[in-house]
Structures are given as C-alpha cells and as structure tokens.
Design a binder for these strands. Sequence first.
DNA 1: GAGTGGTCTAGACCACATA
DNA 2: ATGTGGTCTAGACCACTCG
Lengths: 253, 253
Amino acid sequence: MGTTQLESVPEPKYWHLKTVLSEALDSEFSVGEILPNERELAARFGVARATLRQALEQLELEGRLQRRRGVGTTVAPPRVGVAVGTEQHAWPGASGDVWQSVDSVLATPPAVVAAALECSTDEPVHTVRRSRMSHGQRVATELLYILAAAVPDLTAIDAPSGAARARAVLRELQHLTLEGQDRAVELGSARADDAKELDRLPGSPVLVVTTRFFAQGRTAAVSVATYRADTCRLTFGDPAGVEIHHDPEQQAS
Amino acid sequence: MGTTQLESVPEPKYWHLKTVLSEALDSEFSVGEILPNERELAARFGVARATLRQALEQLELEGRLQRRRGVGTTVAPPRVGVAVGTEQHAWPGASGDVWQSVDSVLATPPAVVAAALECSTDEPVHTVRRSRMSHGQRVATELLYILAAAVPDLTAIDAPSGAARARAVLRELQHLTLEGQDRAVELGSARADDAKELDRLPGSPVLVVTTRFFAQGRTAAVSVATYRADTCRLTFGDPAGVEIHHDPEQQAS
DNA sequence: GAGTGGTCTAGACCACATA
DNA sequence: ATGTGGTCTAGACCACTCG
C-alpha cells in the first residue's frame, strides 16, 4: 500500500504553528528579544499572514509574547504575581493599600453598578478612579463606586474633582465599619479608556475583579478593577513565595 | 470651510459592530435565542465575514454569545458564579468538595509542575484527574498532583488507575495536616484534552486556577484547575448572594 | 519615510451537527 | 444532504513608532 497513514485528526495549521513557535521561544530566544516581523515569519513557515497572526495572538494571550504596533513582537517576561486577596477586610485606601488615587467625581452610577449596589440609577455615588503599578508598569485600573449616603460628611468637601478629592473620599470611608466583602474574577475585554491607560488596544483581554464592600447592613461600595490579562497572574490568600518559574499555561500536550 | 469635522479617531469597524450587536442582544434577543448565521449577518451589516467574526469573537469572550460549529450562534445566559475560595484550608476530596474524581495514575510530573512542587521531574507523583459540574454543565477540569512521598500508605493500593484509585488517594490525603495554601488565577488557552472535556475548541480562553497545598514543611500537592472563561465568574471569600444581574463586562463607553 | 503590527476584503474549502 | 461555524489564502490599506 502506497498510502502512508494520514493524520486522522489533522491539527489546524495555526495550532501546530503555535506549538512550534512556543518551543522556539523556550530554546532559541530570550526575554525581551525581538522576533522577525509577521510577513517574514509567515513566509518562513509557508503560511498566510493571517494564519501566522492567529498563532501569535494565542501566544500573546498566554503571556508569552508582547506585540506593539509600529515596533514589533518581543518575547514577554514571565507573568508577574499581583496580590489581590491580602488586604482582606479593609477598606480601599487603608494604610498599605497599593492603589494610587487618580480622580473622583460625584455622579450617578451606570446601570450595572446600580444593580450591584442595590440602589437606583439616580442615587448619587462617589466615583473614584485609581490605578495600580507593579514592577514599574501599570497593571490595573479601578473604578470604585461609593454610595454618597455612606459617607455623608463628604458634602463639606469643596473640590468637584481631582486626586485630592479622591483621597478625601477614601479617608472618610475608613470611619465606617466594614462588615464583610465579596470578590469575583472574570474575563472581559478592555474598554477604550482602560485600554489606553493600560497601554493596550481596546478589546484586549483583561481580568475583571469585582469587589463588594458591606457596611451598615447593605452594599456600601463596589470596586471594579481591570487587570491586564497578558502580564498578570492574580494571587490570593495566604501569601508566600510567588514562584512557579514560568506559569502553568496551557498548550498542546 | 466645506470640510466637516471628520472622525479624528475612526473606530475600527469590528469594534463598532460589536457595540451595535451588543445593544441588539440586550433589546431584541432573549437568552438561548439563535442568531442569523454569519454570512447573513455580514451581508446585513455590509462587512466581510472575517470582520463580523472578529466582533462575534469578542462578544463570545465576554460571555454574551455562544457559538457551536454545525449548530449556530446563540445568546448566552449570564455567567454562573462558581465558588473557588470557600473550601479554605481543606484538602481536595474533603467532605463538601464539589469535584468528581475521574481517574488517577502514578507518574512523573511535567517540568512546570515539578518546579511548583520543588521536586525533580523524576520523583513520582499521583496525578488525579477531576471535573466539576455546575448548573448541569461541566465548567472545569482539574489535574491534581500529589507527591507520592506525602501519602506513603498508598503503595498498598492495587489498582493502577481508575476513579476508585483516585478516591483512595484523596482519602489518604485527609490524614495529613494541611499547613497552608496558596492560590493564583491567570488567563490561559485550553489544551486539547481539557477543551474536549469542556466541550470547547482547543485554544479557547480559560481561567487557570493554580493552588498549592503545604504540609510537612513543603509543597505537598498542586492543583491546576481549568475553568471555562466564557461561562464562569469565579467567586472568592465570604460567600453571600451571587447576583450582579448581568456581569460588569467591559465595553465601549 | 520606512517599517511595524492592526484592520479589512472576497473568496475557498473543511469539520461538524442535524435532519 | 444541507447548513453551520472554523480554517486558510493573498492580497490591500491604515495607524503607529522611530530614526
């Protein structure tokens, strides 16, 4: 029989490509090194550029590559561990908080937030914008919604917005008794404004951490934090060493 | 001046499409409803199918749509909340555990796991495969690696593999004192085997939850759990109501 | 201005589910 | 057998960065 055993389950080209590239990254490239451009790589592997890009997209999703328009594709460093669960049972802005206040205004909440706060969409909330750095890079942005009714003394504040106002809101928050909190993580895609601040394109994958803070028998505040999914590994609970040399990313066995 | 103000920052077509579709989903479709097929939709919006697909991909990533080859595209139900942090400080397999054992073998660990376990790649580990259901759907698969040295009595077990063996391994584990644990969440793409079990295509986005268990002064076990990112919202900490009506997914403001 | 990645097109064929 | 989404191609142009 001249017919050799054909691939009974032919792997998609981009999948195979991804495997080959992944191995090449491990053995022939070092962190920060720049890869040949997409047209060159596609030609080298004998595929269309779109197919090559499909493989690159997955590798970027897994945190192996970093692509920047006008610059090129580089080998990404291992994901950084970012502690999310350590400030257990403390209000945002408590001492030791790693977030930096950017701005704050008093406004009505978007519908989704109003639902989480169990309030109507026309009840005023303080909206605080914060950002978080890690390893010299901005890794997350946050929108913090605080029921205006929960921090009544704040009406004395004059400034209508600004970082100083944000800090004043958070300072006021510390006087409340935190009765509990709640956290959820899910996949999302970056809104235009978050993307810009995180130096990513709109739509790039992010990990959305939603935290609800309970006080006075109700949900008093909600935080929606948006982390870069490509560069971050969120860590929880008992801290400790943060190693796992290279990250347990998935890949064809 | 005849020149009207042009869009100084022209939005990509697929981004605009995504916004339009997203609004249509909210107002004109109900959960489970099937959308027109891709060729039809592309024609209706006057774009190439590839462009339409780019929009659909993002909506699927955000959990708004579900696409199945040979079937069609349907409106996805809201993401289900899946508790991840409640069994705090208990071994896998303890009473109340929501995971179902599937199989177990004694083998040498992959390099990444060996690093997490701080052991060499030729030290034997029990590898237990488990899966997790929620709301009638399989939402996660897990590979649990347990240092063979940590459960020495197990050598008495005869069966070389199988679910019964898996349960025996976990039963043995309960005798150890759990000294602490460690958890991390990151984005990954489904390996071929996990994808099959989760009824997804290889490479689809998943949330990878890595848990390390400490006993006898070292890392005694490591769990790598793979959750469907499209359908799951991982919840942590103090449980409570799991509401947030529709999910704080990101989108063009 | 040259070179990069990002977007978009119009087609083709394939794998899969269903009737 | 038909219709669906998934893969792939070969081109074009655009937005961005940098020398």
